[in-house]
Write a protein that binds this DNA or RNA. Structure first.
Lengths: 243, 243
DNA sequence: CCATGCTATCTTGCATGCAAGTAAGAATTT
DNA sequence: AAATTCTTACTTGCATGCAAGATAGCATGG
């Protein structure tokens, strides 16, 4: 059983092992974001078993906010609360990834469609950001900087949902996007160079520019579907469980 | 300001005003479901201002589970927690309805596509349920029983997402569907008879039966889009704020 | 040596207590 | 009478206390 001390530092410096606190609205939000980031960045890897009181200590707060944050994280599908036993960071199975992609495909498709139906003066700045991000992808790929490529790619997709104006969609997509992040980072250097991505992005941008909502939706969905089709066999073949 | 006593009963029987408790996993879930149902059924109408302690009393539990349930309900967009002031049941604006429909359209489209890609032996029973629900809609409509029609319609859509096998999608769609429920019930007798719905449902069923995922997705999306296009002008025209 | 039962400990679930912030209304002043 | 200040009651946010369940390890009996 993996315990916190083995991962966050030796016992002797236990008093110092604190994950960075995020100042925000309340302690619950603070805990939620901090834990989430810890999971996203793999500081809390899948299988990591934590106790509320331990995380609370690391965050410098009582169990209550951590308890509430964990409930939210379980809702998000990131952790599993085993009653009277503890909290375990969940791994993502291949089936999970497929489900997550399916939802992402649906939501991003809707976001692309919505942006396409904006008036031109509202579409213009969005298109500019999307284009910049895609160009950054191209240059990063040309320079062999996969990490920069991934970052630019994420910015493209984040922009797509962040700019669509539908808050519920944004929240849902955001929640789900974090879960993909880990899987994508893990397989980043394992998969073939994603050279087609830029073109697919440009296809999405082009449809948005022309105001063709249905085409933009389809292009966005096709793009994510391709990514999913590339990622899934990799995970299955390598029998990657720790995502 | 609307207070609980005015809505849930006179003061003299305060000790008896309890909203039905749902036995389940824990008190948090119990509170969540009970409050959610109270909102859904308009027992807690929009604008209703509640205090944690009051609801806790009605549910026969302490503030803590109610507090956590309320946090979830705020996440769901059903209530707003005003710090140090109270909890207010939110109304749905026309823009909210539009956003909700947009997400529903995306998710149900994905669900329909997924079901279409099932092997035939798995598709068969789903199709049967969908067909039954649609037939029930037809007979209800013929008999002028709008309430039965709405129930059958909801069953159709619930089945679509419940059977798709993607839990994340199910949860998201479920959360959002509840928010539509109120609006649909309010406008049920105000809108023209939804005679086209059955045919659109049959179109969805047909595509699923043929295993045409993309067609099923499109049919499902078009159907919900039509419903949205019918509902929104009504809400705007009647200046309905209390949804 | 192995199996079985017991105990000590660790876990969450929830109730309660306390602090801090808000608003409404009473009391006071102009 | 009107405006202003102060008090008081009520709200959530969070810490803490306590109970109940689960587990691991030890002791005990075979």
């Amino acid at each position: 059983m993996i315990r916190s001390n083995e991962l966050l530092g030796p016992v002797s410096v236990d008093q110092d092992t604190q994950i960075s606190e995020v100042s925000g609205a309340g302690r619950v939000t603070s805990a939620y974001q901090a834990i989430r980031e810890a999971i996203r960045s793999n500081l809390f890897p899948p299988g990591y078993q934590a106790a509320e009181v331990e995380i609370a200590r690391q965050l410098g707060m009582s169990r209550t906010p951590v308890h509430e944050a964990m409930a939210r994280l379980q809702e998000d599908g990131l952790v599993r609360i085993l009653p009277k036993k503890g909290i375990i960071i969940l791994a993502l199975s291949a089936a999970d990834i497929e489900d997550i992609y399916e939802v992402t495909i649906a939501l991003e498709g809707a976001a692309a469609a919505r942006i396409s139906s904006f008036p031109i003066e509202q579409r213009e700045p969005v298109i500019e950001i999307l284009r910049q991000a895609t160009l950054a992808m191209k240059t990063a790929l040309a320079g062999g900087d996969l990490k920069a490529w991934a970052q630019a790619d994420e910015q493209f997709h984040e922009t797509l949902v962040a700019m669509c104006g539908n808050r519920r969609l944004m929240r849902m997509a955001g929640t789900i996007a974090d879960q993909l992040h880990r899987a994508r980072m893990f397989t980043l250097n394992l998969r073939p160079l994603p050279s087609a991505s830029s073109d697919e992005h440009f296809a999405i941008i082009s449809s948005i520019e022309k105001g063709e909502a249905e085409a933009a939706s389809r292009a966005a969905r096709r793009h994510r579907q391709h990514a999913c089709d590339q990622l899934l066999p990799l995970i299955a073949r390598l029998n990657l469980r720790n995502l």
